[in-house]
Each structure stands twice: as C-alpha cells, then as structure tokens.
Design a protein around this nucleic acid. Structure first.
Length: 419
DNA sequence: TCTGTCACG
DNA sequence: ACGTACGTGACAGAC
C-alpha cells in the first residue's frame, strides 16, 4: 500500500482518489515498443560511430555517445566543429538540443545524435521505467506532492505522470500506453488558455478581456492589435510570434531573448514589445505593479489568498547581484501560476464530491496542472463530461471567462474532441 | 552528490 | 557588457 503524505492545508484538502485508482498501462504494448526502440537505438548509435570513424579515417575509434565530455572531445578536438555561439559548461561546450541544432550542418553525426537522444529519453524515462512500477492490476500510482512547488502547483513523482510525452509523434506513441479498462473511456478536460485569462483578469486590460469574452483566438487577436491590422490579415508567423510574446511576458521575458527566438533584430523585438505595452496597457501595469507589491509588501498572494514570500526582495541588503531580476520574474509569474493551481484544486475538491454522489463509477485518475483525466464508463461519458466542465468553468468568475475543452478516447493519445 | 539534458504545463 | 522566460522530476555520466 502506498503511503501518502498528509499535510493540513488551509486552502484545499488532500485528494487521494486519483492515487487510489492509479493509471492503467498497456504492458504488452509497452514491451513491443521497448523492443522496437532498442533496435532503432542500436542502429542509430552504430551509424553515429561509423560516420565519425569515416571522417577521421580511424576505424578503431570508439566513444560513449551519451557522454557530453567525450562528445566535446570528438566534436571540437577531433572533428573541429565551430564552437562560437555555444555556451560553455563544465566539460567544454554545452551540447543540448539547441546547440546540436546549430551544429547540424557541419557533420551527419549531429543530426543522428539528436534522433538518438530523443529516443533514448523516451525509452529510459518512460518505456522501460514504468512497467516495473505497476501493481497487480497494471496500474501505476504516482505521488502528488502538495507542498513542493513554490507557486502552489502540485508536482508528481515516482513516476512523474505530469510529464508524459505529447509534443512529438514518437512521444505520443508512449502516451498511447495509458489506456482505459474494458467498458470505460478516458475523459480529459483541460482549461483553455487559463493563465492568459488570469492575466487578463489581474491586468483588467480591456482589449485582452474583450478578446476572451468574444471567444477570439487570443494570439491572433494580440497580433492584430499590436500590428494594427484586422484579425483576418494576421499571418501565421505574426500569430506565432504574438503567442511567444504572450507566454514570454508572463515569465518576465526580455527583448533580448525575444529577438533571439523570433529571429529578428534586437531593435525590432524591442519595438514589438513597446507596441505591445502601448496597446495592452493593463498588462504593463500588472507587470510593474506586481514587482512593486512584492518589493514593498515582501509577499504576493493568489486570487484565493495563497501566499508566497518575497521577503528577500523587500530587503535589498540581503541580495547579491543578479538575484533581483530573478526574483522579479518569479514574482510576475507566481500569482498567475498560483491562481491556476488554486482554481483546478478547488475544481478537484468539488468534482470529488459530485462524482461520489452522482457518478460513482467515474474516477479521477490524473491532474496535469490545467487538465483533469478521468476513467468513465462508456454510457456515462456525455453526462460526466458536462459535469466536469460545469464544475471547472464555474469555480469562480474571472473578468475573462473560464473555458474548457473535453476529449474522450480509448487511450491518452488518441482522443476525440467532444462538442 | 552534482551537472547536463530533456520530458511536461 | 552581460546574462536571464516561470514551475516541476528523472535519467546518465562525472566525480
């Protein structure tokens, strides 16, 4: 039996139903996936080593492609790949995915290494690690830590079920191992753009609030506003860029980073930000006001009163250089991320009671920050989806309305949107 | 035990 | 002049 930490929280009671149920894994599928991955990994590894041997005319050469230290030796001492622009680290140059992307044109081994890294990650962290953790019913029981994250979020460990892959096709194949039992479906309901809606609420920015009230695509609306063009003239690039800015600003991003990621000059990036703040005055006011409050009060609160100390910001004497801006970025983000955490926790508490009374065969199995996943008998799907959405959307009334999207499927990867 | 890397929101 | 976009957990290699 899994032990649970029991800590009295003034805000939200402990939810144990998820852990009690656990998430069901398709072990046969994972075993097949593992065999496939092992074969492909070996193949890619051989290709990498062969290609380096060929370039260096050294058929005996061998090295561990998982070792950043040895890769530094191969790439920069032996193959003489360019090091400019690459960050330094303990064993030479950083060789993370960004760095490898930049090195890709210089040797075929680099692209292969990116492929190998991605597959190796999926195999080691998920495909191979999870099957030994299931119980006799093939379910994994994660542990949700309620007091680990400084913003009030939950975190998940042993295994972490809040970082199951979804962004790549190979990743989604891993996610597909999470299945519903016979006669059941997985129901996933997630908040749409909840952090930007919370920002709209806090900032009281009329343009942002109005865009949400009208149900507009928020990134498209931002792009139109900042560029001073009609909604239907926004290009894909403009929308994508506005999206990065919308998220970046909630994290305290500067013009420098924006320029680097948007592939435009430092000045153009600064101009976009200036324009953004001119059109979205409330957002600027929120960012400045939040930093100011953290500094003068020494703490910040979420919408529901969850508090995080910023005492170090109030006592500048205690700060060493560089720490101020770090804390300011954390301050900007905390009320947003923390309010999101409060809202979904409150929804979970309400949902727990309603399910027990009205849909006792439906079970809450996972929480992933803005998403709840349930196991629901087929016949109960429409009613349960409506119940979950109703609870989630009505936890509180923000100036920008809370909106959810519901999906249903036989596994956690292939899901169909419910109307 | 620490560092680098990378999976997610 | 420069870094520096927030919050997490898991794994392999280096020490």
């Amino acid at each position: 039996m899994k032990l649970f930490k029991t800590v009295e929280m003034p805000l939200v009671p402990i939810i144990v139903e998820m852990n009690m149920t656990g998430a069901l894994l398709d072990l046969a599928y994972l075993a097949a996936l593992n065999r496939e991955f092992v074969g492909r990994l070996d193949e890619i590894k051989d290709k990498i080593i062969q290609s380096v041997r060929q370039t260096l005319h050294d058929p005996q050469l061998t090295f561990n492609i998982a070792s950043v230290k040895q890769l530094n030796d191969i790439f920069f001492e032996k193959l003489k790949l360019p090091t400019d622009k690459l960050r330094k680290s303990q064993h030479g140059r950083s060789l993370d995915a960004d760095a490898l992307e930049a090195l890709k044109p210089y040797h075929p081994a680099v692209g292969l290494l990116l492929d190998w890294r991605a597959l190796e990650k999926l195999r080691n962290t998920y495909v191979e690690a999870m099957p030994p953790m299931v119980d006799s019913e093939h379910r994994v029981h994660t542990f949700y830590n309620q007091i680990g994250a400084s913003t009030g979020r939950l975190s998940s460990e042993s295994p972490n079920l809040q970082n199951i892959p979804i962004r790549t096709d190979e990743g989604r194949r891993v996610r597909k191992a999470f299945i519903a039992p016979p006669g059941y479906r997985l129901l996933s309901v997630d908040y749409s753009q909840i952090e930007l809606r919370i920002l709209a609420h806090y900032s009281e920015d009329e343009a942002l609030i109005e865009a949400f009230r009208q149900g507009q695509d928020i990134h498209r609306a931002t792009a139109a506003l900042v560029n001073g063009i009609p909604l239907d003239q926004v290009t894909k690039e403009q929308r994508y860029f506005a999206k990065r800015v919308n998220f970046g600003l909630m994290y305290g991003m500067g013009a420098q980073r924006l320029a680097r990621e948007g592939e435009l000059s430092r000045n153009d990036a600064q101009r976009f930000i200036d324009n953004y703040f001119k059109r979205l005055r409330g957002v600027k006011a929120y960012l400045d006001g939040t930093k100011e409050r953290a500094r003068t009060q020494g703490y910040l609160e979420t919408l529901f009163g969850r508090r995080r100390s910023f005492e170090r910001l109030r006592n500048p004497l205690a700060l060493h250089g560089g720490e101020t801006s770090q804390l300011e970025r954390e301050a900007i983000n905390m009320p947003i991320q923390g309010t999101n955490a409060d809202i979904i926790k409150i929804a979970m508490v309400q949902l727990s009671a309603r399910l027990k009374a009205e849909k006792p065969r439906a079970r809450l199995i996972l929480q992933v920050h803005d998403e709840l996943v349930l196991e629901v008998p087929e016949d109960d799907i429409p009613a349960t989806a409506a119940l979950v959405r109703d609870i989630m959307e009505n936890v509180c009334e923000l100036r920008a309305p809370l909106k959810t999207e519901a999906k249903v499927g036989l596994n956690w990867a292939d899901m169909d949107e419910l109307p």
